[in-house]
Simulated assay, not measured.
Amino acid sequence: MSASLTEAELDGGLVVVVKRGHARDAVAAEAAGLRWLAEPGVVPVPVVRGGDAHWLVLDRVTAGSPGPAAAEDLGRGLAALHAAGAPAFGAAPPSAPAEAWIGLAPMSTTTGTAWRAWYAEQRVLPYLRRAVDDGVLDHTEAAVVERACAHLPDSAEPPARLHGDLWNGNVLWGTDGRAWLIDPAAHGGHRETDLAMLGLFGCPHLDRLLRAYDEAAPLAEGWAERIGAHQLFPLLVHTVLFGRSYAGQAIAAARTVR
């Protein structure tokens, strides 16, 4: 989430991060997401100290260097977090505002019971339509994505509790030797989507993280072949937000779906 950041010291010496959101209730959505991710007690997330419709106050996490042990711990933690579940695909965290965001882009909170249809209708096609309307993708390229939506893999897995915007920039490697999750777009979804996002822009020790995850909660056969399908969502969001520089990646991901 794009926001202005500053640090402050509270009475007693606790140093916190104060964030101003890019839109009304954007920080409230982040706060609800952080609390929901913290609820199972399996992944480190900053403590929410307070906030309102515009401001959010969080504990500061001091950044360190990524390490293999922290990555493995995060893999096991994500497996447990996903297993904590969600009421439905698309379900927002309890007490979240009606508006949801992924970065600067609006994100639907419409729910569904079948992952394939919900993912196409609420996570892929809205951003495809906006990219076409904005002239970022042409109709030939849009047809490639539409064909991918028609051939998305089916899944019988229940809704997982997702971070929702789990690229490496939202993993903060702390000086305490742990990997912390920040800036969520938390919702109910398919657990493979979080893992596919981690692979998009490079994540340190990703092989160790995925191995630890798979040992804790084995992934369904053929997971690697479905990565492109799960990356369609974040790649189209990036195409909408940042333009043609991501369009090629989005179309390439769509072509892997057969």
Rank of each mutant, 00 (worst) to 15 (best):
V144M: 11
M107W: 06
G103P: 10
V43K: 10
V132Y: 07
L195H: 02
R123L: 11
A29H: 13
G199W: 03
A69Q: 13
A254E: 02
E221C: 14
E39S: 05
E192P: 04
R116E: 05
V48A: 08
T62C: 13
A91I: 02
T6P: 00
P184R: 07
A212E: 12
T140D: 09
L241H: 04
A143V: 09
A186Y: 09
K19G: 13
Y246V: 07
Q249T: 12
V15H: 10
W118M: 02
A86G: 06
H187D: 08
G135I: 05
V61L: 04
P68R: 11
V136P: 02
A28S: 14
P97Q: 01
H22Q: 12
L206E: 12
L172G: 07
V15G: 03
G222C: 09
D214Q: 10
Q122L: 05
G21S: 04
P97E: 07
T109L: 10
L10S: 00
W223R: 15
A79T: 11
R35A: 09
E7Y: 15
P106G: 01
R129V: 12
W173K: 03
P87M: 03
T6K: 15
G50F: 08
A83V: 09
M107A: 08
A28G: 13
R147M: 07
W101S: 06
V48R: 04
A91Y: 04
P218N: 05
D52L: 03
L198F: 10
L235N: 07
M197S: 05
R20V: 14
M197T: 13
T113I: 07
V136H: 09
A29C: 11
A185P: 13
W223G: 11
Y119M: 00
V132C: 12
D176Q: 11
C203N: 02
G77Q: 06
V145D: 09
R244N: 02
P94D: 03
D207I: 14
P106Y: 01
A143S: 14
A84E: 00
S65W: 14
Q122G: 02
G169E: 01
H187N: 13
S108V: 00
I182N: 03
A179H: 05
L78A: 02
A70F: 10
R24I: 14
D138N: 00
E146I: 09
A28V: 13
A250I: 03
E39V: 07
A254N: 09
